[in-house]
Design a protein around this nucleic acid. Structure first.
Length: 375
RNA sequence: GGGCAGGUUGAGCAGGUGGUGAGCUCCGCUGACUGUAGAUCAGCCGUCUUCGACUGUGGGGGUUCGAUUCCCUCCCUGCCCA
């Protein structure tokens, strides 16, 4: 039996799809957003918080968990789901992103990457085989292939080198699998170069992955380039029936852009990271709770939201908590932003179903483009 | 009443024994954040016409080409002695 199954129907909105991804820990309605829980926790949120917010699947990280507490330890303790008390779907990233974000600590060669651990400086080696081994030990529902993403400002030749390496690593990841109950997704690279993207899709989609991820976007390229690249991706994937995951995206407006182009899954640190830094995502746009004007504001973060923060607390209270650096600030803002993001995805699914996608997109765009005017 | 130590930009400090005090940390004000080395980071934080200029070391006076520095006096804070 396949580790996951994905069924979907196309909609009247561009290439957008409505689907259901079924894993052994439950099903996921798509398009869907995965909160990021790098270190086996979505920062500041309990599993109960996540469930209440409507979370169906979360993302955790191979590199971080292998360093601490160690994937063998997690395996001994019953696997990642049990370890973190999240009995619902989990996708693990392969550590490929750390090759990018921690590049100055390591060296990439054709076999893999050698890192100085960011924790203690010890030498660490990550290869496609090891990334698969770690993810199998963690026991996530979906594992990601080990890839190399690169700065979009690099030359096409340099992007191509990393892309071709990613393709070879993809085959090695597939060959390294030993579990039949864990899905493995391939990752398309190629930067913002249309021809390289086509090549990458040709290479990755030809392999027997359970899903196709689009990597290397939202790393500094412009909106127009991301749109154009997603168009190329959609064209090249054609009728490929597998679930499509756009890695590391994104902001509310990005979701519309990508859903229209056939993306089914997203993950992003933004909702939780910006929450900890004082920013709330609301139906009126983004607000910075550290701004002085909220100190006397008795309104909830978002009058249309039903999360714990909005039901019980005022902007003034949150503004106070952030100034006082009280821990509750981070939790309440995170509860809200995750709720907002998952609500938005649900509304997007509803809008795809009833034909109101364009209208919803217009409503959200108006608020998010005019954030300077948001109270 | 006497003695000692102090008084620096919202707070706390550094510096300065005659030759450019706008330097630091808080606080405060804004911005950023996209497969999390991020409850982080960046800018601003005396005034103005802001690539620069001006003002500012408790108040007043004096010496000097020049004073935060030396002198006089007053005020304020802390400690000690009466």
């Amino acid at each position: 039996m396949a580790p996951i199954s994905f069924t979907f129907r196309t909609t009247a909105v561009g290439r957008a799809r409505l689907g259901t991804l079924i894993t052994r820990h439950g099903s996921v309605d798509t398009p869907q957003f995965m909160p990021v829980g790098t270190q086996a926790t979505v920062k500041s949120l309990t599993p109960a918080d996540l469930r209440t917010a409507g979370t169906q699947i979360i993302l955790a990280n191979t590199y971080h968990l292998s360093l601490r507490p160690g994937h063998e330890r997690i395996a001994r303790l019953g696997g990642l789901h049990r370890f973190m008390a999240w009995d619902e779907p989990i996708l693990t990233d392969s550590g490929g992103f750390q090759v990018f974000s921690l590049a100055h600590l390591g060296l990439v060669d054709d076999d893999g990457v050698t890192f100085a651990s960011h924790l203690d400086g010890s030498s660490q080696r990550l290869t496609p085989e090891r990334a698969v081994q770690i993810q199998e030990a963690l026991g996530s529902d979906i594992a990601m292939a080990f890839d190399q993403l690169v700065d979009s400002t690099l030359s096409a030749a340099e992007v191509a080198i990393a892309m071709e390496r990613t393709h070879r690593w993809a085959e090695r990841c597939l060959a390294a699998r030993t579990r039949s109950d864990q899905a493995l997704f391939g990752i398309v690279q190629g930067g913002v170069d249309a021809e390289l993207r086509r090549q990458s899709i040709g290479a990755i989609a030809a392999l027997p992955f359970d899903g196709i991820a689009i990597g290397g976007l939202s790393v500094g390229e412009g909106k127009a380039e991301m749109e154009a690249t997603l168009d190329v991706v959609a064209d090249a994937l054609g009728h490929d029936p597998r679930v499509r995951y756009l890695m590391g995206v994104g902001s509310p407006l990005d979701f519309f852009t990508a859903v229209e182009r056939g993306i089914d899954l997203f993950d992003c640190v933004l909702p939780t990271r910006v929450a900890r830094n004082g920013q709330a995502w609301t139906s009126e746009g983004r607000i910075n709770l550290r701004n002085a004007r909220f100190l006397d504001d008795p309104a909830p973060l978002d009058p249309t939201c039903d999360c714990e923060a909005c039901r019980n607390h005022s902007r003034a209270y949150l503004a106070h908590l952030f100034r006082a650096e009280e821990l509750l600030a981070y939790r309440l803002a995170s509860v809200h932003n995750v709720t907002y993001t998952l609500d938005l995805m649900r509304r997007i699914r509803g809008a795809l179903a009833d034909g109101s996608f364009a209208s919803l997109q217009d409503t959200v765009s108006a608020r998010w483009k005019r954030r300077d005017e948001v109270r």
